[in-house]
Amino acid sequence: MPSFPTRYFQLPPWQEAAAQSWFERGETTPRKPRPASSVLLLRDSRVGAETFLRYRSGESPLGKIAFPGGSLEPTDDDPVAWYGPSPSDWAKALGLDDPQQARRHVVAAVRELFEETGVLLAGPDSSTLLESNRGPDWMAARVGIAAGEKSFPELLARRGLGLRTDLLRPLSNWRTADFALRRFDTRYFAAVQPIGQDTSLLEGKGIWGQWCAAAREAERANTTGLGDEVGQPDTIGLTLEQLTVPAVLLMIEKLAKARGCIAYLAHRRPTAVYQPELVEADGKYVLQVTGTDTAEGSGQRGR
């Protein structure tokens, strides 16, 4: 039997009460996780591979410091022009039996990336990509979509664009630990920042977001450096481990070791479901993650 290295991650302060309640109540039925998609946006730089991180207020299952992402929405089922692997191909890549569910995750990934960063993986045909995302019209579209006042598929159709699904790469599937009050079943994807497209925070909603060198963040992960830079009351004095979920930290660590974005994307990953387990160790509650050598998004198998 192969052995899989185990790591323990600190709980964020805002999850400690839920963890204690979970243990005190004994065996309980966990909340059903909501399907979600999240995108590791990448670019190469003089200091190595970088990824776009953003701050989330509240108690998001994706972490206070996270990649762009969010829940699937009903409009993700609406018709869109589609370029790249078919939903059936995506179902195989994601380890799903339902091509329609795979399609939802892909649409949600592109939509959430557009809402939160402005980057739009779409073009008029299978070989062309939107050249520029600058201007007030694009920001107004993002604000409307994020507020549920505008439809992402309708935006694409109106501008004669289709999804460039070939520009996404599947990474891993993580489920939030059972004890959490809010849970996601998240499909993580990766994409390289398109030439000519800039990242920006959503007007009126974004608080902090920036490109971060993976090597630097991995090196200082046990310090409060990033949390202090974000400068919010619920980030100051906390380490990256306390600010994000294990999946994100593991992906940053893997990206830090890669020789650029292409090398990172070329890494083969298993199609498996990963989920941290809440355990008590040395008198405190921690998240146990097993299998950290199989993929950057590795965790408890078979859950």
Rank of each mutant, 00 (worst) to 15 (best):
V119W: 09
P85L: 09
A147I: 04
G160L: 08
L130H: 11
A81T: 13
G135V: 11
G204P: 01
D137M: 11
T199G: 06
T199Q: 06
S88A: 15
G162I: 05
D178V: 06
L171D: 12
D76G: 09
L120H: 02
Q193W: 00
D77A: 15
F189I: 06
V143L: 13
W138V: 15
Q100W: 01
A102Q: 01
H105T: 01
L163G: 03
G123L: 04
L121N: 10
P153E: 05
R182A: 15
S172L: 13
G196P: 04
A190I: 01
G84R: 02
P99T: 02
R159M: 05
I145W: 08
N173G: 07
F184I: 03
A215H: 11
L129M: 09
L156C: 12
A122M: 07
D125G: 14
W208D: 09
T176C: 11
S151I: 09
L181C: 04
G148W: 14
L163V: 06
P153Y: 02
R187T: 08
G148N: 12
W211Q: 12
L94V: 00
L129E: 11
W211V: 12
A146P: 02
D89T: 09
E115L: 05
G162V: 11
C212G: 00
Q100Y: 05
A190F: 03
E112F: 02
R164Q: 14
E116G: 02
R169N: 14
G206S: 09
L171P: 07
F114G: 05
E115H: 02
W208N: 07
S86W: 05
L121G: 05
D166V: 06
A140Q: 14
A146W: 00
K150W: 01
N133V: 13
E149Q: 15
E149V: 15
Q101V: 11
D125H: 12
L161T: 07
V80F: 08
A191K: 04
L163M: 03
D76Q: 08
L96S: 02
G144A: 13
Y188F: 15
L156W: 10
L181I: 12
W174Y: 03
L120C: 10
I207A: 11
L202I: 07
S126V: 04
A109L: 06
V119L: 12
S200E: 13
G204K: 00
G144T: 13
A177Y: 03
W208G: 07
V143W: 00
L181N: 05
R187H: 14
E116D: 14
K92R: 15
D137W: 03
Q100V: 03
D178F: 12
L201P: 10
S151C: 09
M139H: 07
M139E: 15
P124I: 04
L113W: 06
P153F: 05
R158F: 06
G84D: 02
